[in-house]
Design a binder for these strands. Structure first.
Length: 399
DNA sequence: TCTGGGGTCCTAGGACCC
DNA sequence: TCTGGGGTCCTAGGACCC
């Protein structure tokens, strides 16, 4: 039985602004003018939500103070919080700048009960970083995440062992992680409104409503089956950058300059991270807010600007008629199919028995010893062909 | 609701190979 | 000339998350 904490800073960017400027405390604060990146709880009381357009937000909450985002301050605050999280548990999985899972199983003798750990963490973050943080405690990741959302703002919610389904089933389906507007609409149209409704349907029946993969996930979650473990980051799968262009039309030279700047930014980040990528994606948004993507896969992975830029220019050229017709409001690029820069060592690990638990433990030990990003490829060579086929699902490439 | 900047994962069709 | 089944890779789009 596991005990998992989900820790989530409340209205993170807005809370940092209120911490650093006493004049903002107790007042509705919006971070970001064009689009709301974060809204303080005072602003949320008027109905403002993050990702809302700035004009709509000011209409709902005319007395709100709008501040410019200060990303450096948020990164700094996040680092300070994660330093405390890392002290609180051996296994910490960062989900985003303001959110993490902690595995506190088996720490009772040393650190106290999970509730004590969570309470201490909340106090430390408040006293040492000056920010409110909500924590959910439960036996699975998913439930801990739902619990922390229920605990907000500045709260602690524990779902006791044995009480999981009683907590989960009355909730509306959109409270589940992975159910957004589109899935919610489909489920509602099928008469499914609560998690209990979801639990009454078979996985097969759900697959007709939301597709196979989503059905499998929702069915499992509705029965509180979630075997995902807390683990340190796997390393990113893609690196990208984008730029909104506003309404006015741009010359080819201007568009090319934007493209060059984006390629420069992305390839710098790739080199800094020691990553190379094979697939280049051009992302465009038009005047009517329709979006398209165009992609090309290169012969070999790279992090240098030239081949990536040349590829993107060709893709952009292909889209020129549409751009001229509808106007362009956003250019984005993404490099995916990332690999780590090769070099380093190759290890050969003998596998004594055809036991995938053993093998996974061995791979985990390699990650622990050399870092999560160290393991880029595992080739399984068996004494007979059975082994390779049987071992396939282990999927060690995901290191 | 009139729209930022990052990401992740899934689906589906087509090309191509055996 | 017509016909299988399975697998992988690529491309495009969609949904979701913070």
């Amino acid at each position: 039985m596991f005990v998992i904490l989900h820790a989530d800073l409340d209205a993170f960017f807005a809370s940092v602004e209120q911490r650093d400027d006493p004049a903002l405390r107790g007042r509705p604060v919006l971070v970001g003018g064009g689009v709301v990146l974060a809204a303080s709880y005072e602003a949320r009381a008027c109905g403002v939500r993050s990702a809302m357009g700035g004009s709509r937000a000011r209409q709902l909450c005319p007395e709100a103070v709008v501040v410019r985002p200060r990303f450096a301050a948020y990164v700094e605050a996040s680092r300070a919080v994660f330093a405390l999280l890392d002290e609180a548990a051996p296994e910490v999985e960062q989900l985003s700048i303001d959110e993490a899972f902690l595995d506190v199983s088996g720490l009772e003798a040393i650190c106290g009960t999970p509730v004590q750990i969570a309470a201490r963490l909340r106090r430390d973050v408040r006293e040492q970083v000056g920010l409110p943080i909500s924590i959910g405690v439960a036996s699975t990741k998913h439930l801990a995440k739902v619990a922390s959302a229920s605990a907000k703002p500045d709260g602690l919610l524990v779902v006791e062992a044995g009480e999981e389904l009683a907590f989960l089933h009355p909730l509306a389906v959109e409270r589940l992680w992975g159910v957004g507007p589109a899935t919610q609409t489909r489920l509602n149209e099928a008469g499914i409104r609560t998690v209990a409704d979801l639990a009454r349907h078979s996985e097969h029946a759900l697959s007709h409503v939301v597709g196979r993969a989503a059905a499998r996930q929702l069915h499992a979650l509705a029965h509180n089956r979630d075997a995902r473990r807390v683990r340190r980051g796997r390393g990113r799968r893609s690196i990208g950058s984008q730029r909104a262009l506003g309404r006015g039309s741009r010359s080819s030279a201007e568009l090319d300059a934007v493209l060059v700047a984006l390629v420069d930014r992305v390839t710098r980040r790739m080199r800094a991270a020691g990553r190379v990528g094979r697939t280049v994606v051009l992302r465009l948004r038009f005047g009517d807010y329709a979006r398209v993507t165009r992609s090309r896969t290169l012969g070999k992975p790279t992090a240098s600007a030239r081949p990536i830029l040349v590829t993107l220019r060709r893709l952009l050229e292909g889209a020129r008629p549409t751009i001229e017709e509808r106007g362009l409001t956003l250019i984005g690029i993404t490099v995916t199919n990332l690999e780590h820069v090769t070099g380093g060592v190759q290890l050969e690990l003998p596998v004594e028995e055809s036991d995938r638990i053993e093998l996974e433990a061995t791979l985990d030990a390699v990650r622990d010893r050399f870092g999560a990003g160290s393991l880029t490829r595992a080739t399984l060579v068996g004494a007979d062909e059975e082994l390779g086929a049987w071992m396939g699902p282990v999927d060690p490439e995901r290191g």
